[in-house]
Write a protein that binds this DNA or RNA. Structure first.
Lengths: 253, 253
DNA sequence: ATTCGATACCTGTCTAGACAGCTATGGAGA
DNA sequence: TCTCCATAGCTGTCTAGACAGGTATCGAAT
């Protein structure tokens, strides 16, 4: 068990976080390895001098981070890193849109009859109309993403100008739902630039690219917005970590 | 507040899950919308007839699912769905490898001097040797992913045959770490098939494809394995949901 | 009109104890 | 030798209460 740094009650870091950090450090140090059983919760209580709920909170934290797992009636064990357990997020896209140096240029914004594909995606008939918006996101003057979006056109609720600009896009990424969306389905895909897309992005056609397709629904579960971002593959960073790296542990939740 | 289905103490579903499900349903129904304040924890205690820790557990569940957020001193609020908050996982790759109908064919497995690129990735000098393994994953007889991997060659620990087969790959995806990995860094990329890759996958060169690059480290933080999966873009499903869809809510965690 | 402090309400954290259900072990009985 | 059961230890869950610290409000004093 080796020596143990006790809980610092005067620290700003609450006891449960200190316990979690302590356990994490021991795993990083290799004191406990994949498959090893950790001390039981009762033992950890005694070790750190905290109540069981506090220990459990620490263990729960590590469980959520994929560092350990528990088996009812058996104990808590160190989880082996798994490639298949990796998750990726759109943090880099978020950074791009949040960046003050990012600008959005409206290429097109008009009311059009929907193509068969858009009809299918938005579940509207070809007699109705949709709002087609095409944008180019630029970072430091350089075009980065091409975005096309189709909104169900509701004559009773005329779309305001603001719907087209940077704000709307920021809301989509960081605050959709105020716009009346209940939920959305997203799909990530690998593709290549068409000639049109390439021209807007100042690239060669055929260059490999990311596609982020999004479909948002309203509170009646009807699709209201379908669209896709496309941008050169190196414009979106999708990297992550499995297991317990030494630095940037991301603890303290 | 409307009528409320009370907690069923005889159910297999524990009270905290019932409370979470109840709150979730009210959000799905639109009773609470993005930005709305939910009843305070004390009110929820009275409403459901459970203790505050139980209510908090339910709220924590919803917070982790990105359904609500809390503000200290103010209350709990419904979170708006955000495109930028989406996360993607490798569930479809996992399914592929777990599938009994998936086979792995070793194309190559030998000890070679490393290329400059491999030298850099594995942090070894060009005097040392690495084990190069190239595999093709097939599902129902059809080639799906091409996998190349480079392992640091340690003469003291000769690699066993098992290291090359299906088991090794399954371990990489679902149980790495028993192999002595402490953690790994992954990167997802969009690319196109080279001529060699296309020939193994029975495809045309230039077809858009996924690349999953992985770099695993041992307990001394030295890289020990670098490799990449590549496969046609429609072979890997990266879709996800933001907000609270009606079905497949994924509650009960 | 402005500032400041008391106050009420909220979430964040911790405790000590209780019971349920699962798992492994070892001993008694067949 | 084998089977079965009691038991001990483990995680899972819940309770009732406590205190800390953040937030908004409203009234008193300036």
């Amino acid at each position: 068990m080796s020596k143990l740094r006790p809980i610092d009650r005067s620290s700003f870091e609450p006891p449960y976080a200190q316990v979690a950090r302590g356990m994490r450090e021991r795993i990083v140090n290799g004191e406990y390895r994949a498959g090893d059983r950790l001390p039981s919760e009762a033992e950890l209580c005694a070790l750190y001098g905290v109540s069981r709920m506090t220990v459990r909170r620490a263990v729960t934290l590590l469980t959520q981070d994929g560092v350990v797992y528990t088996e009812n009636g058996r104990g808590t064990f160190v989880r082996a890193p798994e490639l298949g357990a990796a998750t990726f997020d759109l943090a880099s896209l978020r950074r791009l849109v949040d960046d003050a140096a990012t600008t959005v240029k409206i290429i097109e914004a008009r009311i059009v009859p929907p193509s068969p594909r858009v009809c299918r995606k938005l579940a509207v008939d070809d007699e109705s109309y949709v709002v087609a918006i095409k944008r180019v996101l630029s970072s430091a003057g350089e075009p980065v993403f091409y975005h096309s979006e189709y909104l169900v056109f509701d004559p009773r609720r005329p779309l305001v100008e603001a719907e087209y600009g940077v704000t709307a896009l920021r809301d989509l990424l960081a605050n959709a739902g105020k716009s009346g969306f209940k939920y959305g389905r997203l799909r990530l895909d690998a593709s290549t630039l068409t000639e049109t897309e390439a021209s807007y992005l100042a690239e060669e056609p055929g260059v490999s690219a990311w596609v982020i397709e999004h479909l948002f629904y309203d509170f009646e579960n009807r699709p209201v917005s379908w669209g896709r971002f496309i941008g050169r593959s190196d414009r979106l960073d999708l990297s992550t970590t499995v297991g317990v790296p030494d630095v940037g542990n991301g603890a303290g939740g």
